Simulated assay, not measured.
Amino acid sequence: MDDLRAFETTARLGSVRFAADSLALTHGAVSRRITKLSEDLGFKLFEKSGRGLRLTAAGEVLNLTLGRFFTELATTVESLRAANARQNALVLSCEPSVAMRWLIPRLASFQAAHPDIALHLSVGGGPVEFRRDRIDLAIRRLDFALPDAWHVQRLFPEKVGPVVSPQLAPAFASGEYIALGSKTRPDAWSRWLSTHPSVRRPTEIRFYDHHFLIVEAASAGLGVALSP
């Protein structure tokens, strides 16, 4: 490998001296490695051209192959290093709304307190496949069965209620408001209103795909979001 590297570097840089500087070797060491490689292979790799060197036809072919080989080798090593780094990281899965509105605002203080923990976020909801999805921890609303072997720590009970920008608060009180709901809980407004009979009904209910979207819409003054 050392002889091949010396040859490839010399061919790429066009000079034994430049190759020696690049490889942190002496001029003589690089020349000896190229000579040894040529003897082992049984054919010449370079020939003199004026005061310099040029590749032989066989050297050209070998150099093209080695260029691809060393490039692929470097790419493979980097991908393995990245995979190893991911294995040493902690992967946490949670729903987008939880990540955006609750978790991410707290991560800066967590990382300051635990700089040795590399935390990666994975967005997801519902049942968890830890092994398949390579997840270490998950934050979930517990509306599905859990295997007995799982370790569960309850964070807090879920509370659901209206979220409204200050300028729309009078409209919410008077019933002149658009209700914003999530398609993941299409009956949330009807159930909430049934338990809060004193609240005036909305003029319309509009549905978004996810909770983080209805919270953003409420913040923009588009209506009143019923959000966990």
Rank of each mutant, 00 (worst) to 15 (best):
A6I: 01
R134C: 08
H114S: 13
E176N: 15
E60T: 09
N63K: 07
F172H: 05
L107D: 12
T26Q: 05
V30P: 00
E60D: 14
F110I: 14
I135G: 05
S49A: 14
D148M: 09
F207W: 07
R191C: 12
H196S: 08
T71L: 08
D143W: 04
P197E: 08
T71W: 03
L146I: 14
V123R: 09
F212K: 05
G223Y: 00
L222V: 07
L45E: 00
T10R: 00
A89H: 00
H196R: 10
Q167W: 10
A112H: 10
A89M: 03
W150G: 11
I205H: 01
T9D: 04
L193V: 08
T71S: 11
L80W: 07
R106K: 14
A57W: 06
T184L: 11
N88R: 13
S194D: 14
A83V: 04
S198G: 10
A6F: 00
G50H: 05
R140N: 14
D3I: 02
P105S: 09
V128W: 01
R54A: 12
P197C: 11
I104E: 15
P202G: 06
D187S: 13
V163T: 11
V61L: 12
S198K: 12
L73C: 08
Q153F: 10
A112W: 04
P115Y: 07
L41W: 02
P228R: 09
F144E: 12
A138T: 05
P228G: 13
T184P: 00
G52K: 02
A225H: 02
V91G: 02
G125I: 06
R106N: 13
L53V: 08
L146W: 10
W189T: 03
F7L: 02
R206A: 10
L226G: 04
F18D: 11
R206K: 10
L62E: 00
T35G: 07
I117D: 09
W189K: 03
A99Y: 03
G50R: 04
L168C: 08
D143I: 09
P105N: 09
A220N: 11
L92S: 05
S190K: 11
A83G: 14
S15H: 03
D143M: 06
S97P: 01
S38R: 02
V61N: 08
D3T: 09
V199Q: 12
L23P: 01
H210C: 09
T56A: 08
K159T: 15
G181R: 00
R191Q: 15
H210W: 06
A24Y: 08
I135D: 05
G126T: 09
L142Q: 14
R134S: 13
P105D: 07
A108H: 10
A145R: 12
I205E: 01
F207Y: 14
L23T: 02
R81F: 04
P96K: 03
A149K: 12
V199M: 10
P96D: 13
